[in-house]
Each structure stands twice: as structure tokens, then as C-alpha cells.
């Protein structure tokens, strides 16, 4: 056990190594480890968040699917209603048209009947006059009896 100047040499080595560790080994290592820790924590948090978001998105998509289905059903119902309504309207229109056609036809018929009647009337009057002329021959003067004939024609 002889203590000598080696002690100072070793103390200097020791100081140098402490300095290296203090300055160049521990701080960067600590920083790297802290950063890694932070990164892992952040990654885990992000995973958790993503999981939640996925859940939310699933819920949202289910919701919107349900909405879409309801809306589609609504649209279909509306379309059906509209279809029925259109058919109804078409029926109505057709009926009106048909009535109109029938009415005009009836009117025309009535007119023609009226016309035929008027013609017939005049013919019957003529025929009656001709018959009367033939029966009566000279006894009846057309000019004298014109007033009476006209009266007759009116009565027919």
C-alpha cells in the first residue's frame, strides 16, 4: 500500500470521464429515451383516439344509412301517391273529355233532329196541301187558304 502521485493521475482520469459522461453521454441518451417515451405515449394515445373515431364513424355511417333508407322509403311513398294522383287526374280528364264529346254529339243530334223535323214539317204541309188539292181540286184555292195553311204548319 504505497500512496503516491498515481492518485492525482487517476483523479484526473476520473474527472475526465465524469466530464465526458456529464457532457456527451448522459444528456443525449436521456433526450433520446425521453423522446422515445413521448413518441410511444403519443402513438398509444393516437391509437386510442383512432379507435374512438372509428367507433364514431361506424355509428355515423349506421345513422346515415338509416336516414337514407327512411328517405328512400319516403320518396317511394311520395312517388306512389303521385302516381295514383296522376292516374286519378287522367281519369278525370278523360271523363270530362268524354262528357264533352258526348254532349256535343247529343247537341248535334238534337240539331239534326230539329232540322229534319222542320223539313218534315214543311214537307208534310206541302203534302197535305197537295193531298187536299187533289181531293178538293178546284174547290180549294191555294191563295184563299194560304192563311189557314200557315196556321196548320205552325201547329205541326
Amino acid at each position: 500500500m504505497n500512496i503516491n502521485a498515481t492518485l492525482f493521475g487517476e483523479a484526473i482520469w476520473f474527472a475526465v470521464f465524469i466530464w465526458i459522461t456529464l457532457k456527451y453521454v448522459w444528456p443525449p441518451l436521456q433526450k433520446a429515451m425521453a423522446e422515445r417515451q413521448k413518441m410511444i405515449a403519443e402513438g398509444l394515445a393516437a391509437g386510442e383516439r383512432a379507435k374512438k373515431e372509428l367507433e364514431l364513424a361506424g355509428k355515423r355511417s349506421a345513422d346515415s344509412l338509416r336516414d337514407a333508407k327512411a328517405k328512400a322509403a319516403e320518396i317511394i311513398a311520395a312517388a306512389e301517391r303521385r302516381g295514383v294522383q296522376m292516374i286519378e287526374e287522367a281519369k278525370q280528364a278523360a271523363k270530362v273529355e268524354a262528357d264533352k264529346v258526348v254532349a256535343s254529339a247529343k247537341a248535334e243530334i238534337a240539331q239534326q233532329v230539329e232540322q229534319a223535323r222542320a223539313e218534315l214539317r214543311s214537307r208534310v204541309a206541302d203534302l197535305a196541301v197537295a193531298g187536299a188539292e187533289r181531293i178538293l181540286k178546284r174547290e180549294v184555292d191555294a191563295k184563299v187558304h194560304a192563311g189557314m195553311l200557315a196556321e196548320l204548319r205552325k201547329e205541326l
Partner: peptide
Amino acid sequence: TDPNLTFALSLS
């Protein structure tokens, strides 16, 4: 095994 070293450490 050199007391100089161990004393250098402990005295530091």
C-alpha cells in the same frame, strides 16, 4: 487493486 486508484475515486 491499486489503492491509489480507489483513493483517487473516493477522495474525488
